[in-house]
């Protein structure tokens, strides 16, 4: 089924925020249909894409995710009437903000996957994994975090210099 498994030097970490009614069920269908996709994705279930706060996406990147996927019901199919429309508006604006801040938008993907689209789930996850793998690790947030936080080491030259001055 699989061609020769390639060894990669870098395995990206993908976090998927999905709604429980469409995309989570779609991913379940991919499982029951025994479709295969890269194991890089971790799925977080929400009742609705409308519940997904953009802060979660930032948090995911901050925690070392290399790619983030947000997926819910197709427009008009929302179990909660209109949650996905709110999500769509929110993320349209949020993408602009991320772009302005300098995050490569290729790391962040939005899609609609219905409960019947197991195949589409596999496609979306595989594509995003491959794309992010090619881009390499997401280091911007980690570097920022290192700059802002004390690393915990007590024998840095800077500290020693400071001690000497006392």
């Amino acid at each position: 089924m699989h061609p020769e498994k390639q060894k990669h030097t870098f395995e990206p970490k993908i976090i998927a925020f999905v709604c429980t009614w469409c995309t989570y069920a779609g991913a379940d269908l991919a499982g029951t249909s025994r479709m295969q996709y890269p194991p890089n994705v971790r799925v977080l279930k929400f009742p609705c894409t409308g519940r997904i706060d953009p802060v979660f996406i930032l948090k995911a990147f901050q925690q070392g995710a290399d790619g983030v996927l947000v997926s819910g019901c197709h427009p008009g199919d929302c179990h909660y009437i209109a949650g996905n429309f709110h999500a769509r508006r929110r993320f349209a604006v949020f993408r602009k903000l991320l772009e302005f801040v300098g995050v490569d938008l290729n790391r962040l993907q939005f899609s609609w996957v219905s409960a019947a689209e197991g195949g589409k789930w596999v496609e979306v996850v595989t594509d995003l994994t491959e794309k992010v793998r090619a881009m390499g690790p997401m280091t911007e947030f980690r570097e920022l975090a290192l700059e802002e936080q004390w690393s915990g080491a007590i024998n840095t030259p800077e500290l020693e210099e400071a001690y000497n001055q006392i």
């Binding site: 009742p47 409308g50 519940r51 953009p54 179990h79 209109a82």
Partner: peptide, 18 residues
Amino acid sequence: CGGCGTCQATCPSKCVEL
């Protein structure tokens, strides 16, 4: 309440919780 949580993601002061 339907339980979608859209209010929580919208709340600017983060005072709704699902």
